[in-house]
Amino acid sequence: MHLDVLDQELMCSGHVGCPGCGATIAMRFFLKALGEKTVMVLPACCWSVIAGPYPQSTLKIPVIHSAFETGGATASGVRAALDMRGDKDTTVVTWAGDGGTFDIGFQALSGAVERNEDFIYVCYDNEAYMNTGIQRSSSTPYGAWTTTTPGTDWKRLRKKNIVEALVAHRIPYAATANIAFPEDLVRKARKAKSIKGSKFLHIFASCPTGWRIPSEMSIKIARMAVQTNIFPLYEVEDGVRYTINYKPREYLVREYFKLQGRFRHLTDQDLDAIQEMVNEDWQLLLRKAGEHA
C-alpha cells in the first residue's frame, strides 16, 4: 500500500490504547494527512485516556481536553480565538467518540454545524462507551451485546445514522471513512481541511476489547464492515451531492458477525433480519446517490 503522507509521526509510542486499538490507527492516519498545524479538542472518550495523563501527551500537536458534551462548543471557541489572532492556517478538529457525538455531545455538535463553524468534527466510532466499560450508545448496532444490553437483552434497536443527521444540517462536507481503507481516509481528511465551514468525518474504528475480537483481527473486521455494506464508504457535499466511494463485493453480513464475540448469541434468523436491514440501508443510499441497484 502506498500512502502519500508525511513521514513525520505526530503520534508517540507508549500510549495506553489497548493492543490492536482502531481509534489509535484512525488518529495516526488522520494526523499524517493533516500535519502539525492542527489544534485538537478532545471531549471525554477513549482518546482522553490514550492522549496521556498529565504531564505526558501522546500527540505532538496542541490538545485541549474538554467536557463530554462540549466538543462542538469548545472547537467553536478555539476557532474564534485563532481567528482573532489572525491565524487562518491552523485547522481546528474535534476528535470525539460515538458517545460524545451521537449522544452526549450531539447538541453542541448540532449547534456548531448549524452556525457553520469552520472546523472538522471527527467521530471515531467504536460503537459503545468503551473506556468506561462497554456501555451501549445510540451508535451500538442492532444485535450487539454490551454490559448494559447483556445476555438475552441484546440491543434490538438500530444504530443511529449520524451522517444523515449531519447531512440534514446541509453542512459543506460529511463523509464516512474506515481504518482499513487508509488511502480513502487520508483523501477525505485532506479534502475536509481544504473546505471552509463545518466538516464531519465518521471514521469506523474497531475495538478489540469491546467487540470481543482478537487484536490482530481489528483491521480485517473493519474492512469487512465495508465489504458487507454494513458501513459503506461515501461522502456528501453541501448536504445533497452523494458519492459512493467503494462498491464492495457484497459479502454476507454473517461473515462479519460470526467473527465477533459481541454478536455470538445471534441466531440464523436474527442474521437474516440484519441482512435485510443492511440491504435496505444500502438501497436507500444508492437511491440518494442517484445510482440504481
Binding site: C12, P19, Q56, S57, V63
Partner: peptide
Amino acid sequence: PRSFTTTESNLTGSWR
C-alpha cells in the same frame, strides 16, 4: 495544566 513531555517513557512492550 499543560503537558510537557511525551508518553514515550511508558515502555508498553511489557504488555506483550
